[in-house]
């Protein structure tokens, strides 16, 4: 059985910076089956408020240790940040279809492009391990919200950063950075773009990819109730009708989606 509900032991749960947190738990089951782009659905506490589980991407797998990073944005993630090491975490996973990274030939360093906005770095670090040193573009509002730069660097990736306020790297949107790169000299026709971040960013990435005729895989967020495909609550519009973000995604080919 690949997907299970289990009680995993929390190894650590620490603040990274600002509202960003890093949680590690141990589960050999999830470690065995997880693939980049998949997520776990967490019951943050035992009460009925918040009632629903919260989906969080798998950020890294080391042995039987699973790492997540999350931003505290509301009561669910706040309750998660209050959980302590040694407690058990009720979770379901791994869930969803991850990124498609099984390429016919090993990619050249810098051949594939990752683009992340804010928290969107979370699943891409895990993917970077599989895709031989992609070019990584990260965008955020300000310097403090640029996450995981060192993790990408330690995997040998080339990084380009963008901030809205210019406090680090390019001043402006990370999608402008992408546009500049694709219109510059290097031939990116054989690349795939892997993207995760806020919806408007993913939309911009898709349009740019389409214009340059490059494939893009985007990881979406949907409002989830079940996370297992049962409620039909998290759908997104595609060229073949509504599809479930939790089960048919969260990763979709950008050509499939209607923006």
């Amino acid at each position: 059985m690949e997907t299970t509900r289990l009680q995993a032991r929390i190894i650590s749960n620490k603040r990274l910076t600002g509202n960003y947190w890093n949680l590690e738990f141990s589960s050999s089951q999830i470690a065995r089956y997880a693939r980049p782009g998949q997520f776990v659905n967490i019951r943050v506490n035992q009460g009925t408020d918040p009632l629903l589980r919260r989906p969080i991407s798998i950020h890294a797998v080391k042995g039987s240790k699973i790492k997540l990073i999350y931003e505290v944005v509301g009561k669910g993630t706040l309750a998660l940040s209050e959980r302590k090491p040694q407690e058990t975490l009720d979770l379901i996973g791994p869930l969803g279809k991850g990124f498609n990274y099984q390429l016919p030939v090993k990619p050249q360093p810098g051949q594939n492009i990752f683009i992340a906005g804010g928290m969107g770095v979370a699943p891409l670090v895990y993917l970077a391990e599989k895709l031989n040193k992609p070019l990584v573009l990260i965008g955020a509002r300000t310097k403090k919200q640029i996450l995981c730069a060192d993790e990408f660097r330690s995997l040998g990736c080339t990084l380009q950063l963008a901030t809205d306020d210019g406090s680090l790297g390019f001043t402006g949107k990370v999608t402008d950075l992408l546009e500049n790169i694709l219109t510059s000299t290097i031939d990116y026709r054989l690349s795939t773009i892997y993207a995760c971040g806020p919806h408007p960013m993913l939309r911009a990435v898709s349009l740019i990819a389409l214009k340059h005729n490059i494939n893009a895989q985007v990881s979406l967020e949907g409002h989830m109730a079940c996370g297992t495909g049962a409620c039909l609550g998290c759908v997104v519009e595609t060229i073949s009708g509504y599809k479930r973000v939790c089960k048919d995604g969260p990763v979709f080919s950008s050509r499939e989606l209607i923006w």
Binding site: H223, A225, V235, G241
Partner: peptide
């Protein structure tokens, strides 16, 4: 097809 999202 169902209703327009968000549905929950």
């Amino acid at each position: 097809p169902g209703n327009v999202p968000p549905r929950t």
